[in-house]
């Protein structure tokens, strides 16, 4: 961090062009809007594609999708789900097991747009504050959301959950839920960096556990090219996940970002002027890492290019 840093991402825009330097961000926003759009064509235009919301939905009358976190809560409250709910949850579990649990957070969840805006503003305004919350708090909150239905027989978390409330609000009518979203925004802006998504949200925590084994990972394949501009650390919503992969070569740590907290958002790929990061297959990478030479590194790059 010795040199005077340019604003985050400027170098990447200069070297790759604006579009390439925002590629994954744009794709993510499109994905988030597409998901919302699939639910909105019905109420707005009468063309029914997906009915329901992120808790449970039925797409084109054939594809059920169920949120595993909320279904788990209702099961703990004593419910026997129906076949559609179970099929839906299996599909969702398999999908996120493959692509990374927190892909939900960065590619689907509507709150991500709110918290991304907060952290963008935080960077722009240069706001810094000592963060009072540990990143592991979310796992405690996750535990809490599972204990409450056991204790009360009711899905308590859904009375407060900003994630489901935001999405339900967009699709069915927001009510006063915007207050909650504004709260999340201000909390992230002034109280804690990535405070909601990175520290408190039990939905993210659940998906994070789910993505523990997922093969799709960002990998710092060209980490020797890193020029320490710190841009990836600045944009990463879970910046603790980067360092071991990026700087761990000397310690024999592989280049794969091996943290379930990583949301696979791809912003590090976007903002890196040196193209250090790529999406890759963790298991393929690990195999290569065993015999890490410059040759195998080249092979690896080619493999990822092909992928």
């Amino acid at each position: 961090m010795g040199k005077t840093p340019l604003p985050v991402g400027v170098e990447a825009i200069e070297s790759k062009g604006w579009l390439k330097a925002h590629q994954w961000l744009i794709l993510r926003r499109l994905s988030q809007l597409l998901v919302i759009g699939l639910f909105l064509t019905g109420p707005l235009a009468g063309i029914w594609i997906a009915k329901g919301n992120l808790a449970y939905s039925m797409t084109l009358d054939v594809l059920p999708l169920t949120d595993p976190h909320i279904l788990l809560q209702s099961v703990l409250a004593g419910v026997n789900p129906h076949r559609d709910a179970i099929v839906g949850v299996v599909i969702v579990l398999v999908f996120y097991l493959l692509v990374g649990g927190r892909v939900f957070c960065s590619w689907v969840c509507p709150v991500n747009m709110v918290t991304d805006l907060a952290s963008w503003l935080r960077r722009k305004l240069g706001l810094r504050s000592a963060t009072p919350l540990s990143r592991s708090t979310r796992y405690w909150v996750l535990g809490l959301t599972l204990v409450l239905p056991l204790a009360t027989g009711s899905i308590v978390w859904e009375l407060f959950n900003p994630v489901s409330m935001a999405f339900r609000g967009i699709v069915f009518g927001l009510g006063m839920a915007w207050v909650l979203l504004l709260g999340v925004f201000l909390f992230d802006l002034f109280v804690a960096r990535e405070g909601w998504c990175g520290r408190l949200c039990p939905v993210g925590a659940f998906y994070s556990l789910l993505g523990h084994w997922s093969p799709v990972r960002v990998t710092a394949v060209q980490r020797e090219k890193c020029d320490d501009c710190m841009d990836c650390f600045a944009v990463c919503p879970e910046s603790q996940v980067i360092k071991p992969a990026l700087k761990g070569a000397k310690k024999g740590i592989g280049p794969v970002i091996d943290f379930a907290d990583c949301t696979n958002c791809g912003r590090c790929i976007d903002v890196c002027a040196e193209d250090v990061f790529r999406f890759g297959n963790r298991y393929a990478e690990e195999k290569h890492n065993l015999s890490e030479t410059s040759e195998s590194r080249d092979q690896q790059n080619r493999f990822i290019d092909a992928a």
């Binding site: 009915k51 919301n53 449970y56 169920t66 027989g153 859904e158 339900r168």
Partner: peptide, 17 residues
């Protein structure tokens, strides 16, 4: 009602249909 609040996952499928 008390069982309903444990069972309903707030998906709105009934609303849609």
């Amino acid at each position: 009602e008390d069982e309903f609040l444990g069972a309903c996952i707030r998906c709105g499928a009934c609303v849609r249909d």
